[in-house]
Design a protein around this nucleic acid. Structure first.
Length: 269
DNA sequence: AGGGCAACCCGGACGC
DNA sequence: TGCGTCCGGGTTGCCC
């Protein structure tokens, strides 16, 4: 599912493709995907310019020239495609935003949504999110302080958006593997060295994942070679039964707090 | 505080 | 081909 690196990849590519462009049409095929009635939604979007595209955690925020914000969360299985009338995926499109002859398709929005919000509403919506892990200000002392207040398992701690924002099921496993720590290890049982390794792994995995375009398999547009490059670089996620790339013992899949979790029994301690 | 769990949602994969 | 069934999984909220 799209996590921070996937959304950051989307942000960068969407900015290249759509920034400063004007919305010319909007099609809503699923009312539940939006927060106001479709008539109002359309009239507020059409003729508005996309002035900027920002990211906060797993959300994207399309800043509009009207001063309003279009807040996107893809949740489970949501993805986007930029094409045109002919070039588009053979899937159900819940929302389609036209920008001249280009069309931005929103696909797989089940629990995902596009909410049109004022600055105040947006701020309120994002208020409970924890710090951005790739932010410059997220230093080791900040991380040590933060994790020092935690007693739960690393897995549940990392996927908790109030603790740290943007990490989901895949990257929490990848970070634990990189650090050589078991996902069920308790945060309050870590020594100083382990906290340091965990911090470095967190920064390292996310930075590399962004660099390689995340692990989403669907390209954003025809000829997009950036998206999904990290898919083959995942070392434990969705690799059940395959040999560990460090020690060759099979990667195991286990349910931890009702989330599928992948790890190596041998080299993660 | 943390763990467990249900509810949300429905496209699409899968089985017959 | 066609129809019915069920899974996935981030997030919220509630209970213990």
């Amino acid at each position: 599912m799209p996590e921070l690196p996937e959304m950051e990849t989307y942000r960068r590519l969407l900015t290249e493709q759509l920034a400063c462009r004007t919305i010319t049409d909007v099609e809503i095929n699923r009312e539940k995907s939006i927060n106001i009635n479709s008539g109002q939604f359309k009239s507020q979007l059409i003729k508005a310019q996309i002035t900027d595209i920002k990211r906060r955690a797993k959300h994207l925020i399309f800043k509009l020239s009207s001063g309003k914000n279009l807040l996107l969360h893809l949740m489970l299985g949501g993805w986007m495609y930029i094409g045109n009338e002919e070039d588009n995926p053979d899937r159900t499109k819940q929302v389609i935003i036209s920008i001249g002859d280009k069309k931005l398709y929103f696909i797989g929005l089940r629990l995902g949504y596009l909410h049109l919000l004022t600055d105040t509403e947006l701020e309120k919506e994002l208020a409970d999110l924890g710090p951005e892990p790739i932010d410059q200000t997220f230093s080791f002392p900040v991380f040590r302080e933060l994790i020092g207040s935690r007693r739960g398992m690393l897995k549940t701690t990392f996927v908790n958006q109030q603790f740290l924002s943007g990490i989901g099921n895949c990257y929490s496993d990848e970070i634990c593997f990189e650090a050589g720590l078991l996902p069920m290890k308790k945060a309050d049982e870590l020594d100083e060295d382990e906290i340091k390794i965990l911090y470095q792994s967190l920064k390292g995995v996310l930075t590399r994942a962004i660099q390689f375009g995340g692990y989403m398999e669907e390209p954003l547009f025809r000829g997009d070679t950036k998206t999904g490059g990290y898919n083959e670089l995942c070392r434990v996620y969705d690799r059940e039964g395959e040999p560990c790339l460090r020690c060759s013992s099979p990667i195991v899949k286990e349910e931890i707090s009702s989330r599928k979790t992948f790890y190596c029994r041998n080299c993660q301690k």
